[in-house]
Amino acid sequence: MTITVGLAGITGRFGRLLAANLLKNPDVALRGYARDPSKVVSSISALPRTQLFAGGALDGAAIQPFVSGCDVVICAYLGDDKLMVEGQKKLIDACEAARVPRYIASDWSLDYTRLQLGDLFPKDPMKHVKAYLETKEAVKGVHILVGVFMEVILGPMSGTLDPKTNTFRYWGEGTELVEGTTYADAAKYTAKVAVDPSAVGIQKFLGDRKSIKDIAASFEKVYGVKPNLERLGSLDDLKKRMHDLRAESPAAIYSYMFLFYIYYLLNGSTLIGPGVDNGKYPEIKPETWEDFMRNRKLETLLGSMAALSQ
């Protein structure tokens, strides 16, 4: 039986990965929604099971025919709060009108449901979208939690690893758990959830959960290079630092935003494990932190995030 999957944001980094995984299933008919469908790679757009729709995130008239007839709609948007909240509400309203059974929200995150609004402010849109879905009758919300992306933690954005000096920099004691999943594995799990009508509500998948000190030990094991460890301060120091920076220069969001992520990642309030749903799809063997490094050369480790956009 053919399953029609709508994918909004098909041209984005994660959208492309997800589309490729969905199309590995011969029973999937894929509908892609984008501002410029010509940007969809030919390996996806040329397949007869792919149908592309053009439109903006707030264009209700274009969204309605895109979602009509879908068995599930996935949102792979990534952008500002207006896109993440109002853009998703447009999709959800269209799904409700078309009686689409399930909507997979643009989450792929640590467990933001355990936070209060304003705690980790970049995740507030997810809380608003989840609450909005709960007001609907026909469409059921699906929220996929995966921890943080491994590519981010071991990439330049986080500042965790300095490749020039092979130094791991950390806040806290270095023993706090860091839950991570690769982009590729998150896409694999999402493709499975999309064709599983029983998968509704919170769905938790995880590649691995290890401390920074354990990750550093794996780094030495894999690359044969003994890393340095540099403690930046306690979690209380981190909390003060991130709030001070925000108060000093609120518009300079990138000077403090990732510190908020690190704080709520490490303080235990957003952990999704150890009870996860990996066992529902045992054919997927997700990469551990050690696998992630073993499958990448040291000189390209920090470029793994950028490589996703190639």
Rank of each mutant, 00 (worst) to 15 (best):
T300L: 14
K192V: 00
A186F: 01
L52Q: 07
K210W: 04
I284S: 01
G69C: 09
Y223S: 03
T300V: 12
V152F: 01
L91W: 02
K221S: 13
I215T: 04
G172R: 09
A76W: 01
S211N: 06
R241E: 15
K204T: 00
V200K: 00
R294S: 07
C70P: 03
D81P: 10
D80L: 03
G233M: 04
Y281N: 05
L245S: 08
G12S: 13
L206A: 02
G155E: 10
V195G: 06
G224Q: 07
D244P: 10
D111R: 09
D237L: 03
V40R: 03
D214G: 13
A306Q: 12
A20G: 13
R241Y: 02
Y170A: 11
A19C: 12
K164W: 00
G79I: 08
G69T: 02
R35A: 06
G60A: 07
F260I: 10
L177H: 10
L58P: 08
Q51W: 00
R31W: 10
S45P: 08
P227A: 06
K239R: 15
T182G: 05
A54I: 09
F121D: 01
A252L: 11
L110W: 15
I284G: 00
A187R: 05
L266Q: 06
C95K: 10
Y77H: 09
I153Q: 12
A20S: 14
S43F: 08
M84V: 08
V225P: 02
I104A: 02
A62K: 13
S304V: 00
I104R: 03
G174N: 08
N166T: 08
L78N: 15
G201N: 04
N295C: 05
D36A: 11
G15H: 14
F66W: 09
D291G: 03
A306G: 10
K192A: 12
K24N: 11
K240E: 11
S198D: 12
G174P: 07
S45D: 04
I3V: 14
G275Q: 15
A247I: 12
K89H: 10
F260K: 09
T182E: 01
E96N: 04
Q310S: 06
L308M: 12
N25T: 12
V148N: 14
V5C: 00
E287Y: 07
P101I: 06
K123A: 11
T160M: 09
G15M: 14
G273S: 13
L91G: 12
L117Y: 10
I63C: 05
G118Q: 04
S269D: 11
K204V: 00
V152A: 01
P163V: 13
E176I: 00
G15F: 14
V146Y: 08
E299Y: 01
F14Q: 13
F53W: 05
P163S: 13
G56F: 02
A252V: 02
D71R: 02
L110K: 07
R16C: 07
A54E: 07
M242D: 04
T182I: 05
D59Q: 06
I144C: 06
Y256M: 09
S269Q: 12
V142N: 01
V85F: 00
V193R: 02
Q203M: 06
C95A: 07
C70N: 05
Y77F: 14
S249T: 00
F66E: 01
A8V: 14
G180M: 08
D244H: 06
I272F: 06
K140G: 14
A34E: 07
R13Y: 03
